[in-house]
Computed example of a mutant assay.
Amino acid sequence: MGEWLRRRAAKRIKPGTGRELRPFRWWQPFARSLYSIDLGRQVYTVDVRHHRRFFSENGKGTADLYLDRRQHAESKLPAAFPVPGGTIEVADSPFGLKRCHYVTDVGEERRLVPDRASAEGRREHFARSHPVASRVIGVTSAALLVTSVLLLIPQLVEVAFKIPPVAQRFGTFVSPVALPAWLNTLLSVGAVLASTERALRLRHSWFLDRVG
């Protein structure tokens, strides 16, 4: 996050109320992200409730920052919370978080640690316990997104060129790929699952995951 974006993000920060951090519940694996970092004698926790963006006027989510389990600040996303020695940067994607890092004043980065009970925490635990299987899943997710892009994009372009104003100005376009509806649906669902899996690892491609 550049300096200009940090300054803009700083304007979105509001002071917290001091309320206590609620524990992660078993029914919240894909509705909430909870990350923490220990900065010496202070523990900072980022709490993102993903459903909030669906109820906001501009579709932007929010993040709460807790200091030693008390709400310290809140901000619309993307957020940049000043903390001792640097900044905690938080950014979301349509499938979860794509960034939750502590950036020091000299530019070094460290990812915050997900709560063990969260979906991100369970994915991280799986990666440590089964590193080979974890890598296979990661490669499969990326391959599925690439496949979806290569097969779905030409068909979407063909649909766009059927719109009368577009067709009148640019002509028509026939996709070299023609898949049955059930296979297109299967690819779309697979792309969503792949992007969600990548979000659990804070992996994000501006093109692949946006399309997925």
Rank of each mutant, 00 (worst) to 15 (best):
Asp115Val: 00
Thr196Met: 11
Val83Glu: 10
Thr185Gln: 12
Trp182Glu: 12
Val211Ser: 04
Gln42Gly: 01
Ser33Val: 02
Val157Asn: 07
Arg52Thr: 12
Ala160Asp: 02
Gln168Ile: 05
Ala79Trp: 04
Gly85Arg: 02
Lys98Thr: 03
Leu65Phe: 12
Ala191Ile: 06
Val157Tyr: 08
Ile88Leu: 13
Phe54Leu: 15
Pro165Ala: 01
Arg210Cys: 12
Val177Gly: 06
Lys14Asn: 13
Arg6Asn: 11
Arg49Thr: 11
Pro114Asn: 00
Lys60Gly: 12
Phe55Glu: 07
Val189Phe: 14
Arg198Phe: 08
Glu3Trp: 15
Asn58Cys: 02
Ser129Lys: 15
Gly85Phe: 12
Thr147Met: 14
Ser93Met: 02
Leu144Met: 11
Asp115Ser: 04
Trp4Ser: 13
Lys11Ala: 14
Gly59Arg: 04
Gly18Asn: 10
Gly190Lys: 02
Arg169Glu: 14
Leu5Gly: 14
Cys100Asp: 00
Ile13Lys: 00
Ser75Asp: 06
Val106Met: 11
Val174Ile: 13
Ala142Gly: 12
Val174Arg: 14
Gly85Lys: 01
Asn184Ile: 08
Pro23Leu: 06
Pro164Gln: 10
Gly107Tyr: 09
Gly138His: 11
His125Ile: 08
Glu108Leu: 15
Thr87Met: 13
Gly40Glu: 11
Val113Glu: 11
Ile137Arg: 15
Gly40Tyr: 01
Thr17Met: 14
Leu39Ile: 07
Glu108Thr: 11
Ala9Ile: 03
Phe173Thr: 00
